[in-house]
């Protein structure tokens, strides 16, 4: 009896953090042993980013400014969105496998452990190739930052980190919701792909879009929170909209809602016959 009380106490945040570190450490170790796979996927990710950047570059070669946003400001948002995407790609990549596991019935194994299902599922994959993107994104951001002559001080760095976390939460939340649709919809693969494509719009200032899209990208599929609303805090410190100030709160709320949605699906999951 006594033992059980101790046990219940131990499965708090510290417990999950400890397990998470162990799983990631083990996973990394095993990934490193497949060296060719590791190198090729990292290289591929870098290449994808370079190609993506090329099209961005060509666009701005021809239009030096879009709706009052100049090349370096756009570059700032571009780098910002790449960094904000990293936690999603490194830590939440298993969402891409959710549909397959749900369909085949393999997902049921996550229901048999005395730990949180979402945590158990997500912790299983740590994707290193996202780190290549982090390096690339940081490079772009630092370059844009210096060109724009934005001052560097502690306050602004802390601001930047908070904004990046906020942006990541939105990105993760969108993909959580998209992935979790597979609990209800059979062909939910589309939903994820479409949502993931949407993130490409995230790097453009939402002010360049038409009214209807502005509303959609702010309130329905909130990709405007991935770069624009947080980015504007640093880029245009004199005209920060209310939505930017509220974005950390929205980020947490939206992430929590996406988690609840995911869990709702997982709890109603009953597996396929076997």
């Amino acid at each position: 009896m006594n033992k059980e009380i101790i046990k219940n106490k131990k499965r708090g945040l510290g417990f999950y953090f400890r397990i998470y570190c162990k799983i990631i450490a083990q996973d990394l170790k095993s990934k490193m042993s497949y060296r060719a796979d590791f190198i090729i996927s990292t290289f591929g990710m870098l290449l994808t980013n370079i190609v993506g950047f090329m099209s961005f570059y060509i666009l701005f070669k021809n239009f030096p400014s879009i709706n009052g946003w100049n090349y370096h400001e756009m570059l700032f948002l571009y780098g910002f969105s790449l960094i904000a995407l990293t936690p999603l790609q490194c830590l939440f990549d298993n969402n891409w496998n959710l549909r397959m596991q749900v369909e085949s019935g393999d997902f049921i194994k996550y229901c048999f452990r005395p730990i949180n299902i979402f945590f158990y599922f997500i912790s299983e994959v740590f994707d290193v190739k996202g780190l290549g993107q982090l390096v690339f994104g940081t490079g772009v951001l630092v370059y844009a930052w210096t060109c724009l002559g934005i001052p560097v001080n502690i306050r602004i760095i802390i601001q930047l980190i908070l904004l990046l976390i906020t942006a990541s939460l939105f990105m993760i939340a969108i993909m959580n919701v998209a992935a979790a649709t597979c609990f209800w919809i059979v062909r939910s693969g589309y939903v994820m792909i479409v949502m993931f494509r949407f993130k490409d719009y995230a790097r453009y200032p939402v002010s360049i879009f038409d009214g209807i899209f502005k509303i959609i990208f702010t309130f329905v599929i909130p990709i405007a929170f991935i770069a624009y609303y947080p980015g504007i805090v640093i880029l245009r410190p004199n005209e920060i909209p209310l939505l930017s100030k509220l974005s950390p709160l929205f980020g947490i709320l939206f992430f929590w809602l996406s988690y609840r949605f995911w869990m709702l699906g997982a709890e109603k999951y009953d597996g396929t016959g076997s």
Binding site: Q26, D27, S30, K31, G105, D106, I108, K109, E124, S274
Partner: peptide, 12 residues
């Protein structure tokens, strides 16, 4: 234990 589905970490 499900005979056809391992519940162990595949890569560990």
């Amino acid at each position: 234990v499900f005979g056809q589905r391992s519940q162990l970490w595949w890569s560990l």
